[in-house]
Simulated scan of single mutants.
Amino acid sequence: MGKQLIYSVYFILPILLLWGAKPAKKGEWNDGLSLSQTKAFQGFLAICIMLHHIGQKTCASWLFPKSRIIPGLEFFVPIGYILVSFFMFFNGYGAYKSFHTKKNYLNGFVKKRVLPVVLSLYSTTVIFFIARLLVGEKIDGQGAFFYLTSIKLCNPYTWYVIVLPFFYLAFYFAFRFIKKDGFAVAATTAFVVAYILLGTSIDHNDFLIRGEWWWNCVHMFPVGMIFAKYENKIIPHLKKYYLIYAIVAVAALYPLYLYSVYAQDAFSYYGENFFAPDKVMRRRLTLLSQVFVTMDFVLASLLLGMKVKIGNRFLKFMGTITLEFYLIHGLFVELCDHTFDGGVPSPFHIKNVFLYVLVVFALGVPSAILLKKFHGLILGTGSKKKKQKELKKAS
């Protein structure tokens, strides 16, 4: 019976998402792009990402020996990039909207946008480095250098905060030095595309850009910018043909996902394992299938958000610690797994998956709160009172 408890997450999650939700009346629209709504949904997705990471440790097909596999979270194992695509979309959307709505937005941009992300990377890197030493991992001088510089990920869940500052910097330089808005958007888009082309040309490895998860959803950053640029035309169009778009977007999501699974089997991100001469093309064809499914996921989410306002105290709270929770919960995922990031045995292995989830969440939330407070003290923002009321658009 204890093993079956994990399936309760499939009932708990819809309750968490829809508790307090308010459908819009006929002929009325909810602002699906409001800061409160997008933050609440990101808080929900952060929990799903936690389940994705735990699923990879408990029931992924690649686990060995097979006796380690404990069913329950299979649904979450392959969809991590789909979940993160929503974050990437709003990183791009928010940067563009803020540039056009906030006076002198680029002044202090690096401090406001880039530095907090970099600080998050290295603070959790140090925490993970200490944890690795405490659990008994043997680290020589070179290994310490690789870990502490994040050339090799000490915190294995930090690829997102490594690539995001580069996208923000590309945005900053483009909009600082290119006067025409369309050209600035194109320049930022070109940078992200160049990163994807570079990523697809690199074999799987133990260092930077080590696998497809480093780039298979980052295209949503420029998509978010482009959406923001043409929002005044897109939103009225979506409202005019809402029912058609909503039905198609929701109905297409699963078939597109199945096609992405087929593409991974047919073309493979791992073509180098078979010494395929066309391995780069194989990766890009596989990536194309995931471009379709991530774009449809975000579109479907936005369309549903136009008619249903989500948000309750729990999701609003989670939305305030999303980045910190994303980065620190993995510490407890590793401590409660069989091995700590594939190395030495983990000290607190938990066999019951439901208990595993509860422990990671129960420790991850207060740790994220402390981490946020620490970052606030370092950046000088911890003592400031919140002056802004809910913004009309995400930023």
Rank of each mutant, 00 (worst) to 15 (best):
R282I: 02
R283P: 01
R283C: 04
R283V: 02
R284V: 07
R284D: 14
R284G: 07
L285E: 11
T286D: 13
L287K: 00
L288V: 07
L288K: 01
L288Q: 05
S289D: 11
S289C: 11
Q290A: 12
Q290F: 12
Q290T: 15
V291G: 02
V291P: 03
F292C: 14
V293Y: 13
M295Q: 12
M295N: 09
M295I: 04
D296F: 09
D296T: 13
F297M: 14
F297K: 08
V298K: 04
V298M: 06
L299Q: 04
A300F: 05
L302S: 07
L302Y: 15
L302H: 11
L303R: 02
L303H: 04
L304G: 15
L304A: 14
G305M: 05
M306K: 05
M306T: 04
K307W: 10
V308T: 09
V308K: 08
K309S: 12
K309I: 04
K309Y: 08
G311Q: 12
G311V: 07
R313I: 03
F314P: 08
L315T: 14
M318D: 06
G319A: 03
T320W: 02
T320A: 05
T322R: 06
L323A: 11
L323S: 06
E324H: 06
E324Y: 04
Y326T: 03
Y326R: 02
Y326L: 07
L327V: 13
I328K: 00
H329S: 10
G330D: 14
G330Y: 12
F332E: 07
F332S: 09
V333C: 05
V333T: 08
L335N: 07
L335E: 12
C336I: 06
C336M: 13
D337P: 04
H338Y: 11
T339W: 05
T339Y: 09
F340H: 02
F340V: 12
D341N: 13
D341A: 14
G342C: 10
G343E: 10
G343M: 10
G343Q: 09
V344P: 01
S346E: 08
P347Q: 08
P347M: 07
F348V: 02
H349M: 10
I350Q: 00
I350T: 01
I350C: 00
I350Y: 00
K351W: 08
N352E: 09
N352W: 01
F354K: 01
F354M: 10
F354E: 05
L355F: 11
Y356L: 01
V357Q: 00
V357M: 02
L358M: 12
L358Y: 00
L358G: 02
V359Q: 00
V359F: 00
V359A: 00
A362C: 10
A362F: 03
A362E: 01
L363F: 09
G364A: 11
G364S: 14
G364N: 11
G364C: 09
V365R: 00
V365S: 00
V365Q: 00
P366N: 12
S367F: 14
A368S: 15
I369N: 13
L370I: 13
L371M: 15
L371D: 15
K372Q: 15
K372H: 13
F374K: 03
L377M: 12
L377I: 10
L377S: 11
L377A: 14
I378G: 06
I378K: 08
I378L: 13
L379Y: 13
L379P: 11
